[in-house]
């Protein structure tokens, strides 16, 4: 689905990503883990062309997208739910969803306006509210709903449940599991290691811009020292 090789990204003089290889298979759920400032968001932005990597390659479904405009990369079948949710202060909930609507790269329109509202009934109650007038949890639901309206094959969630109340978190995780069941691949960044161990098919841990672990949950569960060392549990 997505394959990044040897990505090096700099912010000015500081070298943030040190030759990262990262891939996601079709339908696969990958947890991207690591402490703050280790390069998780930078890796996502580098793959999407939001930040330009200095070297390395990114391919989506076999097609080289290195150096492409963000919008062109996204249209290869990716949806991005950024940290901070990316609400538009002058658009209503309804407009957030309608403006994003698009058939998938394979022409499918599985996710319609109606289906998104069925998935997030709370949004259906607030259709005429402005995006920025929603609670944090509702904003995250809207951001995910808006992403689904583009009928993606890969959903990228940066800080999926950050700053949300426990009950809302549970709702969000419930929806993410449901999305996974539909066969959409995902990359999830979150602080909640327990949920990620249970949910994701594969886990990638970043330390100072390098991949220090890339594998399934079994090893992480049986050898807790890996998580202790790299994430500090």
């Amino acid at each position: 689905m997505l394959h990044a090789t040897a990505l090096h990204t700099y912010y000015g003089a500081s070298h943030v990503l040190h030759g990262i290889d990262f891939r996601v298979a079709k339908g696969e759920t990958v947890a991207l883990m690591g402490r703050n400032g280790m390069g998780k968001s930078t890796l996502l932005k580098s793959m999407l062309g939001i930040v330009a990597p200095r070297s390395g390659k990114v391919a989506i479904l076999g097609r080289d997208v290195t150096g492409m405009e963000t919008s062109a990369v996204i249209r290869q079948g990716i949806a991005y739910v950024p940290e901070g949710r990316g609400m538009f202060h002058n658009l209503t909930v309804r407009e957030h969803l309608l403006m994003a609507a698009r058939a998938g790269t394979d022409g499918r329109r599985d996710w319609t306006y109606e289906r998104v509202l069925e998935t997030f009934p709370r949004l259906a109650e607030r259709l005429d509210n402005l995006g920025t007038h929603l609670s944090g949890g509702e904003q995250q639901m809207l951001s995910i709903g808006r992403a689904l309206m583009t009928n993606p094959q890969l959903l990228i969630l940066d800080e999926a449940t950050e700053g949300l109340a426990p009950l809302i978190r549970r709702d969000i995780w419930h929806v993410i599991r449901a999305i996974k069941q539909t066969g959409i691949a995902s990359i999830i960044v979150d602080k909640n290691v327990g949920v990620l161990l249970d949910l994701a098919d594969r886990h990638v841990i970043l330390v100072k811009g390098e991949v220090v672990y890339d594998g399934g949950p079994e090893t992480l569960k049986s050898d807790s020292s890996i998580l202790e060392r790299h994430i500090g549990l």
């Binding site: 405009e69 919008s71 996204i74 949806a79 002058n90 309608l98 403006m99």
Partner: peptide, 25 residues
């Protein structure tokens, strides 16, 4: 219209408009 929504969204947060796959250029 959807075009109008993109225009307004662009005034609010144009990076996010691009991140939704809309050709901002």
């Amino acid at each position: 219209t959807r075009f109008g929504m993109w225009v307004r969204a662009g005034a609010s947060n144009r990076d996010m408009v691009a991140a939704l796959g809309i050709n901002v250029k």
